[in-house]
Design a protein around this nucleic acid. Structure first.
Lengths: 240, 240
DNA sequence: CGATTTATTTGACCTAGATCAACGACGCCG
DNA sequence: CGGCGTCGTTGATCTAGGTCAAATAAATCG
């Protein structure tokens, strides 16, 4: 049964924000909510692409891996992000629920039809994909050329930015507190490092006073600009 | 003055392949050809985005860099590829001509209008950006988790695929000969390695008989599948 | 609540690739 | 043709981060 989009937590931040009341209704008719428990794969590399989805809550990781166990997280997605690949028949990455995830799924074919019918939707999707491309290029740079310390700092800043995704600048030297959605092992897989190195760098950052861990998942950043500097990031938060 | 798209070398492979005769005419009216000499920057990180373009000939590298000289190539673009970022006011990467490059430029704003007016164009652009996203995710994986030998092999395969971009499978164990568009230093910047390591790995691959260098730029790959295997790539060429 | 399992931290040591340093091979120009 | 600058190769050494191992610390379960 169609769900009521008016009460959707990500109604305006997600793709659907592009749509008028009437259009949303049509979209809601092809949507279906699903909940995926933490740690479960949503789709595997090579799976047929039968759906696309908006993330309503939770965190999703996109990974590529080799048979020998090497693994790289190639995307982290948060509530209101779009998950999936219109106009492709198969998934090129594995998508896995990091925490429990709620999705608003659409049949891929029907969604493609919607895109074709509603240019505003397509335009918004395009803008999103382009943003994603920018972010992943930044990411490639980090993984390709930065030191372990810089990588860990950069990841923390990135997650901080996306968690309280007000993001946009506000004051310099701002304080941020948040829970890491991912484990040390997942941090390592984001950064092309090992768990041990990530852990050592977290300890190092703590020792420097750049972060403060109340427990291993709860991060307090007393001065975001400072952490940006440690990460070798532009001090001006890259405008989304 | 408008150029005649009918004679365009990349007319059908590029974005414009989506357009009807009449639409192409309109597009051609806002297009302008430029030639950029080898080694020259096309735009710098942070530049105002005044245009987007199709690449007619030559190779373009997209780079991010740090003040201390560390540099990462985050994209390599070939003829028929689309260069630029609609709906963004500034460039987030530097674009530089690797070889002499011919562009077919469009005013960004006008191009955005075209996108809005011609959904087929937008859809084709979307598909392209999604492809680019897939490729760069693969790339992130390579840089994050693969050994130097695997990285170099992967890069050669990737370039071989894109150079004679018939690409699509044909026979197994196929032979490929091509000229590297990029220097050792640029290969290193693609892979997050140093020149020396790239050079050593090229020598290693030559010693193994996996490649054959007639000169430092001219690569002969006697068995593409074998090189794929060395690079830890799926043997089935990832469908474009 | 104690037992067990799983995540994280820390330490000791090792290695892939970086760095430093020649050296050879082309092209270019006078 | 010979000097010179750039690019690529190769060798010797060093080091950031990996690997292996052990000690906490936190979560799960009966």
């Amino acid at each position: 049964m169609a769900n009521r989009c008016e009460t959707c937590a990500v109604r305006h931040r997600s793709l659907c924000g592009a749509l008028e009341q009437k259009e949303v209704e049509r979209l809601s008719q092809i949507s279906r909510r699903t909940t995926i428990p933490a740690g479960k794969a949503i789709v595997a590399e090579g799976d047929k692409a039968v759906f696309v989805a908006n993330i309503l809550s939770g965190t999703v990781k996109l990974t590529r891996s080799l048979e020998d166990g090497r693994r790289q997280i190639v995307g982290l997605q948060f509530p209101s992000d779009f998950l999936g690949r219109p106009f492709r028949t198969h998934w090129s990455v594995q998508a896995e629920a990091v925490s429990e995830v709620e999705l608003c799924q659409f049949d891929r074919k029907q969604f493609e039809q919607m895109i074709t019918d509603f240019p505003t939707l397509e335009q918004r999707l395009l803008a999103r994909v382009l943003d994603e491309l920018d972010r992943i290029r930044e990411w490639l740079f980090i993984v390709g050329r930065k030191t372990a310390a810089e990588r860990v700092a950069s990841l923390l800043v990135m997650i901080a930015d996306r968690e309280h995704d007000a993001g946009c600048g506000s004051s310099l030297h701002e304080t941020v507190v948040f829970d890491l959605p991912i484990s040390r092992s997942e941090m390592a897989d984001c950064l092309g490092l090992t768990i041990e190195t990530v852990s050592r760098q977290m300890s190092q950052l703590t020792a420097q006073g750049a972060i403060d861990l109340r427990n291993s998942r709860s991060v307090h950043i007393p001065d975001l600009q400072r952490l940006r500097r440690i990460g070798g990031l532009a001090v001006d938060p890259a405008a989304i």
